[in-house]
Each structure stands twice: as C-alpha cells, then as structure tokens.
Design a binder for these strands. Structure first.
Length: 422
RNA sequence: GGAAGCGUGGCAGAGCGGCCGAAUGCACUCGCCUUGAAAGCGAGAGACCCGCGAGGGUCCGGGGGUUCGAAUCCCUCCGCUUCCGCCA
C-alpha cells in the first residue's frame, strides 16, 4: 500500500510509473478523497477537544450553570459522532482505493507486459544437448514409475499430482537440500500455518484484489485461505511489529505446500507438473532496511541461483518487464530453467523487491537507533519449488536408455544416483 | 464442547466514574561518578493520526452501550490460563 501523500507528490512520478504496468491513477479523485478525510478528522478533533473542555467545566460549575453546560456538551457530542461517522466512511473508501493500487515498477525494468519482454541478465550452464530426442518430464515420470497423473486426477481433479516410490523420495531430498542450503546462507527455518486469515493475505497483497486466485476454506462463520506461497506467513510474521533497524536483515525460510486456483490459466501447461493447484516449495524471505533493498535483492538472487548451480541445472536470469511484475513488486528477477522437453527456458523462481509496499500493508515498522521510524522493505524468492525443480532434474538428467541421472549434490539425500524405468 | 478466571505501556504490576496516557519496579537513553565496568546519583523517554507550524486528537484486548465525563459501570465478541470432555 502506498502512502497517499508520497503517491500524490509530483516528484514521485506515480502516474507515469503506474502507466507502465497499465494502471491508471486517478490523481484528482484521490486528492479529493484524501482532503475530505483529513478535514473530517480535523473537524472531529476540534469538536472533541471542545467537548472535553466542556465536560471538565461541568465539574466545577455551580448548580445554576450546570444544566446549560450539560446541554452544550450533549450538542458537541452529536457533532463529534457525526464527524466520526464521516471519517470512518471516508477512511474506508480511501483504504479501498489505496489497497487496489499496485506498487510502482522500478525505472530500470524494461518496458512491456509479458515474459517475452523480459531482459536476459545472464545465463549459466549449457542447454543440454542430446543425441536422442528428449522426453518431457511427464513421459519420463510415468516410465520411471514415479509419477501418476491419471490417478491424481481421479483423487482430486486435474492439476494435482501423485508421486510414488522414488518420486516422493526425490521430492523429500530436494526439500532437504534446499533447506540445508538456505541454512548455510543464514536463513532461519520456520514451520508455519498454511491456512491463514484475511488480514494476513491482505498484508502481502494477495487480497483484496486476487481472491479468485486463492483457495478458501470455511467452517461455520470462520473463513481461512490456503497460502499460495510461504511468502505470506513468513512476511506477515512481523505484521504490526516494530523492528530495530540494527536487527535487519532478517532472513527466513520455510518449506510449505502452496495452493493456487490457477484461474485464468485454462489450457496452459495442462501436461505434467508445471502448473499445479497444490505443490510444495521452499521459500526465502528477507526483511531489510529499505535503503538497502536493491542490494539485498542481489544477495537473495544469489542464494536462489546457488540452488540451481548446486544442482548443475542450466538456467538464465531475466529482468521482468515493468508490466509483467506482480502487484506488490517494484522489481523482479525471474530464474528460468532450461527444459529439454519443451526446448525452452521456463520460469522456476521469482526474486522480488517489494520496497515498503507490503510492510505498509502489514504494518512492519522499523525504528533506528536515533529514534527515526519507518517501514521495512520486504523481499522474497523461491528457493526452489520442489515440483518444477523435479521437472528440470528429470528432463536435464535424462539419458538415452530412459534412465535419469540424479545431480551429485542430491545423492547424499536420495541414497541413489540414478532412476531407471520399471 | 462444558466450567471458572484473566486481558493496563518493552516486561512486571497499581489504578474511588472526573485531578489517569496512566503510580511503582525492571529494562532503555543521556549525563555525573569510575582507569574501565558495576553499583549509586541526576535527567529523559510510549505508539499512532491530523496539521507547514503552534497545536490538537486517539490508544488501558476488539466492538457497542450508559454518562456532561469511562482504564474504571453494562452488553457482546476475541484471545489467554486452569479444570473436565474429545482427539493426533
């Protein structure tokens, strides 16, 4: 969420920045709304101050003066109540408007609105060359007997997966490897709820605008949302808290299931494990001094890249286009892994700098030694999703005989170094 | 799910319906003292909102009510603790 005064300050250049992501900022109506809210607050404050003085006067008043003062106090109270009602309404309106305004994309991002407009920053590793026609992970998985998508559909519908045998073992190995790397990089591991309340979802920006992307559960009058990523609980751990600047950066990680409705992606990636309603992921979150957020993003990206390099997976890093970054982000790098089955790079992780946007929503405040107060900056990156990494491991590791070579770094976790067809 | 109790500042813990944003202690900040530290002494210090500022307002779990006036009274919701039941 933006500070409306900053947003309306011409030097912020918000209108132009938001236009890059196709959002039209209605400056006039926002200004009007802000001004009327402020004047309602002011009016209420004035009347309340007067009412307090009058109430104090009642006490020392003589019996004759008393009735008139009491009457006056009653009238003032009516004014206060009216101003408060108006303030509440205007405040709610302002909140509605502000919660719907996306973050300002950084100027360094390329123009454009799709992944085709992303700018390649660097590539690592060679797209695997095969002297046979590589299979995609779905075929590989079925042949190896570790993946059963048909039965998953029977259980829950499309976009769910069943893994069997060495499949789940590999999943578990990946998760442990990711978590161990995260620990090496200084991340504190958490185990968090995967079902969270509305406020938490609002803090990181999933709500109110993207309700249709989430799964929701309800029992009686209770409503909880299934997290689409551990970013949500991890970032909100410090919601409505004040953090000492000298304690930053905080680096947190968690391995959780993630649930996404994938509304609006009908027909996309219908095959295999690329786009699931449920998948598991190790997430990395950093809560940092906003003055250092862009440097911290580089650090975070480095940690995510280390995972890919550790597994020996060919990948590239791209800078997303201004119109393609998420609602809450101001800068995003994607890591794209090479998928031989598709003969292209596919997104596997996003590393984003949210500036103070999420912190304002969630109320993650900072206090410096000299007493200066502000909001923290939040960052996050996958580090990595288990399913998509498994896809890459299978596809990049496949061999002519239909077996799959397991990356060396994983062998200590799996206890096997090759997957062979049943 | 049933019963009882409790929710006050970073923590602990006072608080007759007006003099309470709130005693006191600890922790904290700055001075003095000390070779240094501790102790001791002195001073200071809450958060949030509106305002260029002066200043004003809000906040004693949340919401509502009574009253000229509520941390204090009433209702309600939430949370915590203990006991019972149920369960992994």
């Amino acid at each position: 969420m933006h500070d409306p005064r900053v947003l309306l300050d011409p030097t912020t250049d918000a209108v132009r920045k938001l236009a890059r992501r196709g959002f039209h900022l209605d400056v006039e109506s926002l200004e009007k709304l802000l001004a009327s809210r402020n004047s309602a607050i002011h009016r209420g404050d004035e009347a309340r101050a007067e009412a307090k003085r009058t109430a104090a006067a009642v006490r020392s008043a003589t019996t004759e003066e008393r009735p008139a003062l009491v009457e006056q106090a009653r009238e003032l109270k009516a004014v206060v109540t009216a101003a408060e009602t108006e303030t509440r309404q205007l405040e709610a309106q302002l909140q509605d408007v502000l919660l719907g305004i996306p973050n300002l994309p950084a100027d360094e991002l390329p123009d454009g609105a799709s992944d085709a407009d992303a700018e390649v920053v660097r590539s690592w590793g060679e797209p695997t060359a095969f002297d046979f026609t590589p299979l995609d992970h779905a075929d590989l998985g079925e042949r190896l007997g570790i993946l059963d998508l048909a039965r998953a559909t029977k259980l829950a519908g499309p976009r769910f997966a069943v893994l069997r045998g060495k499949g789940p073992a590999l999943e578990r190995a990946l998760a442990r490897y990711f978590l161990d790397l995260a620990a090496e990089h200084g991340y504190l591991e958490f185990s968090v709820p995967t079902l969270v309340n509305r406020e938490t979802m609002t803090g990181t920006g999933q709500l109110p605008k993207f309700e249709q992307d989430l799964f929701k559960t309800g029992v009686g009058d209770r409503e909880l949302y299934l997290i689409p990523t551990a970013e949500v609980p991890l970032t909100n751990l410090h919601a409505r808290e004040t953090l000492a600047v000298e304690d930053l950066p905080l680096a947190y990680t968690a391995h959780t299931p993630c649930f996404r409705s994938e509304a609006g992606s009908y027909g996309k990636d219908t095959r295999g494990l690329i786009r699931m309603h449920e998948f598991s992921k190790v997430e990395l979150v950093r809560i940092v001094d906003p003055a250092r957020s862009r440097e911290e993003l580089e650090v975070l990206l480095g940690h995510a890249e280390a995972v890919m390099r550790g597994l020996g997976l060919a990948y590239r890093v791209v800078k997303l286009a201004a119109g393609d970054i998420g609602f809450s982000a101001e800068f995003t790098y994607d890591i794209e892994v090479w998928l031989p089955g598709q003969q292209r790079y596919r997104e596997i992780a996003s590393a984003s700098d949210f500036g103070t946007f999420q912190a304002r929503r969630a109320g993650i405040r900072t206090k410096a030694k000299d007493g200066t107060r502000g909001f923290a900056a939040t960052l996050n990156s996958s580090g990595m999703p288990i399913g998509r990494t498994l896809v890459a491991v299978l596809e990049q590791g496949q061999q002519a005989d239909g077996s799959v070579r397991i990356p060396e770094a994983l062998v200590p976790y799996t206890g096997f170094d090759v997957l062979t067809p049943d």
